[in-house]
Every structure is written in structure tokens, then in C-alpha cells.
Design a protein around this nucleic acid. Structure first.
Length: 800
RNA sequence: GCCGAUGUGGCGGAAUCGGCAGACGCCACGGACUUAAAAUCCGUUGGGAAGAAAUUCCCGUACCGGUUCAAGUCCGGUCAUCGGCACCA
């Protein structure tokens, strides 16, 4: 029988809505469970077929937890600031807030049509002034603690978005969002000192229930390395400090390299005899985009600074100083000691410039390649380090450096401070005022939020300044400190700002006096289970952990880490196995799927499509299998008779409860569904199902297919919501059939199967096996060497 | 180059601790129902060989080797694919 999904879906969505079936309880004495999914960016295209995958998964988890008696917080909101909306608004001359409102309405309608059990009373929107107020408030706290600062520096600049990007937003040298070229520009930017938290962001991963690949990716991104800073003298008297992870190779340093941007070059310009060449190289390097720099990896370039030499502190040797763009200004000290014998990049450079290569760690052939193996090498040509292994040599040289005031051990991170300014309109204004007398002055907290001015034009400027800078009425204000005329900061915050703390706002979304009450935060936080995309690991996930740690430090929240458990879903690909995109023409619209099959089938197929963590191609044929299954479930009342669990299905149903319960906890939604399919295959084989068996089945199925199962529950004469009934329990002892079929092997090869009692002894099992004619034949006239019985699994007889 | 993951039928994928490989679904094929088609229902479906048949045997989880009574699973090596990082000294 086919069930009429279109009427049923709407009926139950309206009922849940009207009765507020999934409203979160404010009773903080109940056990809580906080499930979170990444709130969407409400784009103009509407919901993508990929969205329902994580949403349905966490809806299933939430619905099950609710049925298990937890007070469940499963909220939804909108991460609504952002460039696509702004660009659309510019193109069509509509205000971004109107576009946002329209897009949200569309998204919300789509989400409701899939039957998610969100508590819509807790909906939040990052562009809502009531929300912006607290985003700005957090920024001010960061500023007060010295963690937000404005600095003139070289930053990534997207030539198409005409906007500054954070390090995390540059992927393969191009803009993460639009794929356009990224160049370096020196600009004054608001920065957040995430580097202060680098060590804690690594350390506190320990003990969190995050997927291992998430942890490693974060650790690699933060990029901790241990080494030493070494002070080199120069023939001009200045000291140059270099950073190295191989202080043990100090005797092998045959030249020094500085980044082209190094400050000492300016100071030395009158002493450098080839200053014209040097300046020329500096200009060339500055013009290179990130993309060009990474493309030219193989070819080392540089210029020697004539007229100055560095002096190796360990042996007083004078060595030449080069500038080269393979040394980055932003890492370490912006200068390195080059040891071509034991570093591949230095080796390449030395070969190009014909520089000496001195072996100081024996074990390789440094004429052919740099020898970088630290595990087996032994020091040579290094005076007091000779004969030591690398690890010991490191300790010894660091001790020497420290005793002689020539350096010290040092930990460095690849992580950079977070560039927090954006020169765009559709973001939270940075709540700061510039006063010529007082400098930067924070907007007083009681004046928050600083709202965006309502204007006609907000195109990005060609000068790379924020469009807000042209709105003089808004820019001109008075200094909160001295009252004189002053100007507002015109940069806005990046899109990642609002999402860095949204999980806290859900705890108490309507609070006007605090970002959320302490009571609510203490009850709900941390998030018990957060699922999201792998693409956010070094962006949103890192940023939001940083903000949570800061808010912990200033005593707003009580937990050091915001998320207890973090999982990630795989992407849904197009039918051809490629990423879905308009240009590839392989996009599937969830609205169409719902119209053809109903929302329960969409939900079920999204979960049945494959391993939740892996990418899976959409298959329009497979979805029919899910619909067929639901049709078969809908037909079960036709063969319903009797009460209780029948003898024939009792073990099956206990097994099923166990399987579905465990599989949901382990994100094995596909096998949970497979088990339910197998169960109804059993039912049709048996020919009938009892009322209690049917109730158990539809209760287990309810989180997956809530509409159909509610309808069936009602048809059985119930007036409550099945979604709020109790989750079924199983009896472990009853999950095993009384008699079981096991395999019998001879010498490890399958020879037969036998049926024995579930609690049969080893002797019984082996006796039954030997009684089997095929087995008897196999062991006839052979010597039995060994007899193995694994209870409930297998008998293996080893013969010679 | 470094880090991480993955490799199982025509396809998506199953297989707690090493214990009957291919659950469940799709596709395909055969049959029933139908004027016909769709839908639905029943059956077959990893590859190969023998047999009239029930059935029997052999080979199979990327490749090579090892441990074990027993390996998709553990160990050593190779290859391939995907994801992340990438001149970070």
C-alpha cells in the first residue's frame, strides 16, 4: 500500500508547530542533552540537498534522546552576514537586510517541510541588532584584555571581493570564497590575538571526543615547533636573531637569509653597496601573489647584501647575508641561519649561488642531497658537539647558547593572529571610535549595538576602504572619552564573528541584559554533540574554541571547551560522483524530492545513502527502495493480530531494539535502517505482526520517519505524540534465539553448518559437528590434532 | 614533500573481540497480475567448473609476503585514490 505522504507530512508538521511539541523545558533539574548542527548561511539558492544529511542525523539523535527522557536543546538559526547576500543586494539594488529576511523565510519553510524537531522559539539570527550587540560586546572585552589590536601589516587581499582575508580564508593561494587571486597589501587592520591561545588550543583537545582526523588537522594548522633563537653578530654591529629547529647544526651555517621585508635592511641601506639590486628584489617579491610564491617553489632566488656579514656566535666565522623570499617575514624572526648540508631548501639555494656546504651530521652524502635524518645522525665538524646524537647535541648547544647569552630555546607556532577587519558593508561594525586626542576609544557598552547605517549604496571601494567610510553622517561622531569630534571605525567584522559564540546564545536567546544568563549557560554548556563539515576545522571550529576559552577566562562561562564531541559528515555528490554545482548541472533540489517521495523518504534516504562520514553520490534509483520500505511499513496494520511479542519474532525484535539504539549512538544510521528493513522482511515471511511488535517498530522508526509513524500511532487509537513516547528497551538475554546455526570448518575451510542450542557446551557442539555427515566424511581416517569451539560462532576441527 | 584517511560484486555499501565475506538497498534477468504499461508481488543474482537434477568442487576483500586452527580484519612491504597542509627554517 502506498501511503499519502503529502497530506500526512503537512498535518503533523502543523500539529507539532501548534502544540509546540519540541519546546525545550526550562526545568534545569532534568538531565540535559545539547545537540548542535552548524547553522546555515541563508543563501538565495535555498536549501541544498547536502544540508539535510547532518540535519537529519542530528534530528534523529535529538529525537531519540528526547524519547529517552532527556531535556534536549536542538536549536536552529541563521549565520546571515556575508558576501553573497551583499553582492546580490548590490546587483539588484535591494538592501541586504531585506534579501536576508527573504532568504531566511525560504530556508525556514524548507526546513519545516522536512519535519525537524527544532525549538523554533529559540531561533537566532546573527544580523539581528539584538544579537550584534553581544558580538560587539565580546569584541570590546577582547579589546579591554589587549587581545584585539589594530596594526599596520601586510595582509591577504582578495582582488575580486576587494576585501582583506584571514590566513584561514586563503586556500592554495586563492580566495576561499570566490577563487580569485590573493595579493599582499599593507593595511591597518584589527587583529585578534589567537596566538596567545595556541598552546591551550592544542593541549585542551586532549580528552575531547573529537574525531581523530579533526584533532590532527587542528594541531597541524596550529603548527607547534620547538627550536632555538640564536643571536648572530654582524660586521655593522647590529645583532640579527634567527630561529631554527636545528640548533645542533650551528657549526654548519654557511650563510644567513633574511626575508625581503626585514627591518634591518632599511637601517643598513647606506652600507649595502648593491642597494639598488636589493631594492629591486624587494619590490619584485612584494608584487608576487601568494599563488605565484607557491608556484615557484623549486627555483630559489635572492640577492646577497654586499657590505655586511653575519658572525656565527659559536666560532666567530663571518658568513654572507642574503635576502630571499623563501624566508617568510611572518614566521619566527624573519631571518634564518642556512645549513645547506642538512636542510633541503638551504641546499637548493646553496647550489644556485655556489655556497659552501659543510657536513656537521654524519650519515648522509651532503654533496648529493641534504641529510635531514635526525634519528640516526651523529655530529661531526662541530667542536664540542662532535660524536653526539642529534637530540643530545640540541640540548648541549642550547645550554651553551644560554650560558653565553647567545640565544635560548624557543617554541614557535605557524598559527598567526586572526585578521578581524573586513572592508565590506554587510557585517557587524567594529565598535570603536578614533579620536585624534585619545586614540582608539571603545564605544561604551550601553551604546551597543552600533548599527549599520541605512543607506542606498554599499559597494566596496576601489581604494580597499570600507564602503562605510563614505557615509560621513555615520562616520562622524564624538569621542566617548573627551567629547570632541571623532570618527567611527568603518571596518566590519568577518563572517566568522557571529558563529564564534552562537552556541551560547541558544542557551538563552532572548536575554537583553547578558549574552546569556549564567544559569542557562551552566545548565546547557558544553554542547554534548556537535556535527559539522570538515571544511570548518581550521576556521569556525578553531575560532569558536578560541572565543569560548576567552569567555571562560573572563568568567562568562564555566567550561574550557565548548564542544564535548565533534563529528563530521561526508558530502553528498552529484549522480556522476562529482561535487554538486550549478555549472556541472548535477544539482538535486530537496523540494523536488519531497514533492515526489515525501519528507520521510528524503530523510530515510539521506541516512541510508552510505557511511555517514564519507562522501556519497546521489542515486535517484536507490531512493525508491526507501519509499518501498515505508510503503511496506504503512501496510503492516493489514496483517496485525495479537498482543505482546510473538514467539517467532521475540528474539528479532529485541535484537532490533539493540541494533537501532546502538547504531544511532554510533552514527551508523545506514545499518540501523538496514536492520529495520530486514525485520519487516522477517515479518512478511512470518505473515503477521502483533500490536506490540508494530508499536515497537514504529517507535524505533519514528526518529527517522516521524510523519508516517505519528500517523500510524494515531490510527492505532492514540491521542499523544509518538515523538514524545518512551524509547523501547531490550532484554539482552532475549536477543539470542534458543537454537543457533553455526559454521563447521575442517582445517579452517567451511564444510558444513549445524544447528545447536544457544548454550551448548564445547563437547556438545563438537559432537554435533562430528555427527554431521559431511564433517564425518572429512575427518574419516584422519588424526584429529585440535578441536576449537567459539561459542555461538564456529567449530573448527584440525586434522592431519 | 609532510600529515591523515580509504581501497570489498555491475552500483551505494554490510561484516562488535580475527570466527559462515557480500547483510540491507539499487540495478539487471526470469515469472505472476494486466488488453498493455506503470505500480505491486514471487524468484535468481561475486566469478569459474562439473552435473539431467538435488547438489558438489575451486577461486575470490588493491598487490606481494608473514603470523594464526582461522585474516577483509593483525604485522612488514608495494601500488592507487581522496582530504588537509605546504619554502613555517
Amino acid at each position: 500500500m502506498k501511503y499519502e505522504f503529502s497530506a500526512i507530512d503537512k498535518k503533523w508538521q502543523d500539529k507539532w508547530d501548534k502544540k509546540k511539541a519540541f519546546k525545550v523545558s526550562e526545568d534545569y533539574s532534568k538531565p540535559k542533552y545539547y545537540t548542535l548542527i552548524e547553522f546555515p548561511y541563508p543563501s538565495g539558492q535555498g536549501l541544498h540537498i547536502g544540508h539535510p544529511r547532518p540535519y537529519t542525523a542530528m534530528d534523529i539523535v535529538s529525537r531519540k534522546k528526547r524519547m529517552e527522557g532527556y531535556n534536549v536543546l536542538f536549536p536552529m538559526g541563521w549565520d546571515a552576514f556575508g558576501l553573497p547576500t551583499e553582492n546580490y543586494a548590490i546587483k539588484n539594488h535591494i538592501h541586504p537586510s531585506i534579501v536576508t529576511e527573504k532568504n531566511i523565510a525560504h530556508f525556514k519553510e524548507q526546513l519545516k517541510s522536512i519535519g525537524y524537531s527544532f525549538d523554533w522559539d529559540r531561533e537566532i539570527n546573527t544580523t539581528d541588532p539584538k544579537y550584534v550587540k553581544w558580538t560587539q560586546w565580546i569584541f570590546l572585552q577582547l579589546y579591554k584584555k589587549g587581545l584585539a589590536y589594530k596594526k599596520e601589516m601586510s595582509v591577504n587581499f582578495c582582488t575580486s571581493c576587494k576585501c582583506v582575508l584571514a590566513n584561514e580564508e586563503v586556500v592554495n593561494g586563492v580566495c576561499e570564497r570566490c577563487g580569485s587571486e590573493v595579493v599582499h597589501k599593507v593595511k591597518s587592520q584589527w587583529m585578534l590575538k589567537i596566538t596567545d591561545y595556541a598552546q591551550r588550543l592544542i593541549d585542551d583537545l586532549d580528552g575531547l571526543d573529537f574525531l581523530e582526523r579533526i584533532k590532527t588537522q587542528e594541531i597541524n594548522w596550529i603548527g607547534r615547533s620547538e627550536g632555538a633563537e640564536v643571536n648572530f653578530g654582524t660586521t655593522l654591529g647590529d645583532e640579527v636573531t634567527v630561529y631554527t629547529t636545528r640548533p645542533d647544526t650551528l657549526f654548519g651555517a654557511t650563510y644567513m637569509v633574511m626575508s625581503p621585508e626585514h627591518a634591518l635592511i632599511e637601517k643598513w641601506k647606506n652600507n649595502i653597496t648593491n642597494i639598488d639590486d636589493v631594492v629591486k628584489y624587494q619590490i619584485e617579491a612584494s608584487k608576487k601573489s601568494d599563488f605565484e610564491r607557491t608556484e615557484l617553489v623549486k627555483d630559489k632566488t635572492g640577492v646577497c647584501l654586499d657590505g655586511v656579514k653575519a658572525i656565527n656566535p659559536v666560532n666567530g666565522k663571518e658568513i654572507p647575508i642574503f635576502i630571499s623570499d623563501y624566508v617568510l617575514a611572518t614566521y619566527g624572526t624573519g631571518a634564518i641561519m642556512a645549513v645547506p648540508a642538512h636542510d633541503e631548501r638551504d641546499w637548493d639555494f646553496a647550489k644556485v649561488f655556489g655556497l659552501p656546504i659543510i657536513e656537521v651530521v654524519a650519515g648522509g652524502n651532503v654533496e648529493n642531497a641534504a641529510f635531514t635524518d635526525v634519528a640516526t645522525g651523529v655530529l661531526c665538524n662541530s667542536a664540542f658537539l662532535n660524536g653526539l646524537e642529534v637530540a643530545d647535541a640540541k640540548k648541549t648547544i642550547i645550554k651553551w647558547l644560554e650560558e653565553n647569552g647567545k640565544g635560548h630555546s624557543k617554541v614557535n607556532f605557524k598559527l598567526r593572529d586572526w585578521v578581524f577587519s573586513r572592508q565590506r558593508y554587510w557585517g557587524e561594525p567594529v565598535p570603536m571610535v578614533w579620536c585624534d586626542d585619545c586614540g582608539w576609544v571603545p564605544v561604551p557598552e550601553d551604546q551597543l549595538p552600533v548599527k549599520l547605517p541605512d543607506v542606498e549604496h554599499y559597494e566596496p571601494t576601489d581604494t580597499g576602504e570600507s564602503p562605510l567610510s563614505k557615509i560621513t553622517d555615520w562616520v562622524n561622531t564624538t569621542c566617548p572619552h573627551c567629547g570632541k569630534p571623532a570618527k567611527r571605525e568603518t571596518d566590519t567584522m568577518p563572517q566568522w564573528a557571529g558563529s564564534s559564540w552562537y552556541y551560547l546564545r541558544y542557551c538563552d536567546p532572548h536575554n537583553d541584559s547578558e549574552l546569556a544568563s549564567r544559569e542557562a549557560l551552566d545548565y546547557w554548556m558544553p554542547v554534548d554533540w556537535y556535527n559539522g563539515g570538515m571544511e570548518h576545522v581550521t576556521l569556525h571550529l578553531l575560532y569558536s574554541r578560541f572565543w569560548a576559552k576567552f569567555l571562560y577566562d573572563i568568567d562568562i562561562i564555566s567550561c574550557k571547551e565548548p564542544y564535548k564531541k565533534r563529528t563530521a559528515h561526508g558530502m553528498i555528490l552529484g549522480e556522476n560522483g562529482e561535487k554538486m554545482s550549478k555549472s556541472r548541472g548535477n544539482v538535486v533540489n530537496p523540494d523536488d524530492v519531497i514533492a515526489e517521495y515525501g519528507s520521510d523518504t528524503l530523510r530515510l534516504y539521506e541516512m541510508f545513502i552510505g557511511d555517514f562520514e564519507k562522501a556519497a553520490p546521489w542515486n535517484p534509483a536507490s531512493i525508491r527502495g526507501c519509499k518501498r520500505f515505508l510503503d511496506k511499513v504503512a501496510s503492516l496494520p493489514e496483517i496485525m493480530k495479537g498482543q505482546g511479542y510473538s514467539e517467532k519474532l521475540e528474539a528479532s525484535i529485541h535484537k532490533l531494539i539493540k541494533k537501532v539504539t546502538n547504531d544511532i549512538d554510533n552514527m551508523k544510521f545506514n545499518t540501523a535502517i538496514a536492520a529495520m528493513m530486514a525485520f519487516i522482511n522477517d515479518v512478511y515471511e512470518v505473515g503477521s505482526i502483533t500490536k506490540d511488535e508494530l508499536v515497537t517498530l514504529i517507535t524505533l522508526l519514528n526518529p527517522f520517519a516521524p510523519h508516517l509513524t505519528e500517523e500510524m500511532w494515531e490510527n492505532m487509537g492514540n491521542t499523544t505524540f509518538l515523538s514524545l513516547e518512551k524509547w523501547p528497551e531490550y532484554d539482552e538475554a532475549k536477543t539470542v534465539e534458543n537454537s543457533i546455526e553455526i559454521a563447521v570448518q575442517i582445517n579452517g575451510k567451511l564444510r558444513s553448518t549445524i544447528t545447536i542450542a544457544k548454550d551448548a557446551s564445547k563437547d556438545d557442539a563438537i559432537a554435533s559437528a562430528k555427527a554431521d555427515p559431511k564433517v564425518a566424511e572429512g575427518i574419516d581416517r584422519k588424526t584429529i590434532v585440535k578441536e576449537i569451539y567459539v561459542p555461538g560462532r564456529i567449530v573448527n576441527i584440525v586434522v592431519k
